[in-house]
């Protein structure tokens, strides 16, 4: 091994092999993936997935910027591998197509908090999300999620009466009389993003489980 050029070629060749195998090949196989078109039970044509727009897309930027991905995954493992489905984190596993328009794809590698793949389906209430972001202890006592007070504004109740989206805070979290806590635009957008996270559509490569006919 005293011949430099051979060493050089070997070094380049080995990395090239995995570059082809783990970068170029996946891009070849999955880079041209398209949305799936199907017809649901009621005869409506469903195109899935769809790109996010407006507030939900802005919310995705906050999700990225605040680093939510370091504690929350966005992937549901298959039936029989872990307990993702039993925990209600999704009704089917997620597959490549679910992430078609995500930039960046935030699959996550840690579940310090629960998986959020299907959070929009599991929890669609704005109020719940606002309270939870304002202080997770309100909705989930004992959570280790940090509070995000900077996404909210504490202000005097305006003369026109309390805002419609003011947080309903009680007990130890209540604010003084004459004050209210309202979500800032970032909180609003973030919640729109969370509510848009849903994998409730059938895909040929990952069908939803068929509910057994229970009622006779």
């Amino acid at each position: 091994m005293n011949y430099g050029p051979l060493l050089f070629l070997g070094i380049l060749f080995t990395l090239a092999s995995s570059w082809v195998g783990l970068v170029l090949m996946p891009n070849r196989q999955l880079g041209a993936l398209t949305a799936n078109t199907s017809t649901n039970d009621t005869g409506v044509v469903v195109v899935y997935p769809q790109p996010r727009h407006g507030e939900a897309q802005q919310g995705a930027e906050h999700y990225r910027s605040l680093g939510c991905v370091y504690c929350h995954s966005q992937q549901v493992r298959p039936e029989g591998f872990g307990s993702d489905i039993e925990r209600g984190w999704g009704r089917r596993r997620t597959v490549s197509r679910d992430y078609l328009y995500d930039k960046p794809v935030m699959l996550g590698t840690s579940r310090t908090g629960p998986d959020l793949t299907n959070i929009g389906e599991r929890q669609s209430s704005h109020d719940w999300h606002y309270s939870h972001l304002y202080n997770p202890q309100i909705t989930s006592k004992g959570s280790v999620m940090p509070p995000y007070p900077f996404l909210f504004e504490k202000r005097r109740v305006p003369a026109s009466g309390p805002s419609s989206d003011a947080l309903k805070l009680s007990g130890e979290f209540a604010v003084e009389d004459g004050w209210e806590v309202v979500p800032r635009p970032q909180a609003r957008q973030l919640v729109e993003y969370l509510r848009s996270l849903k994998t409730t559509v059938d895909l040929p490569e990952a069908p939803l489980p068929k509910a057994a006919a229970v009622e006779e």
Binding site: G88, T139, A211, A212
Partner: peptide, 26 residues
Amino acid sequence: KAGTPLYVTYCAPCHQGDGNGVAGQF
């Protein structure tokens, strides 16, 4: 049996897994 996963998905975020809710909230 069929309702369990549905409960976990739709109800448990607020009413909690043990159905006891959250004091003062749910």
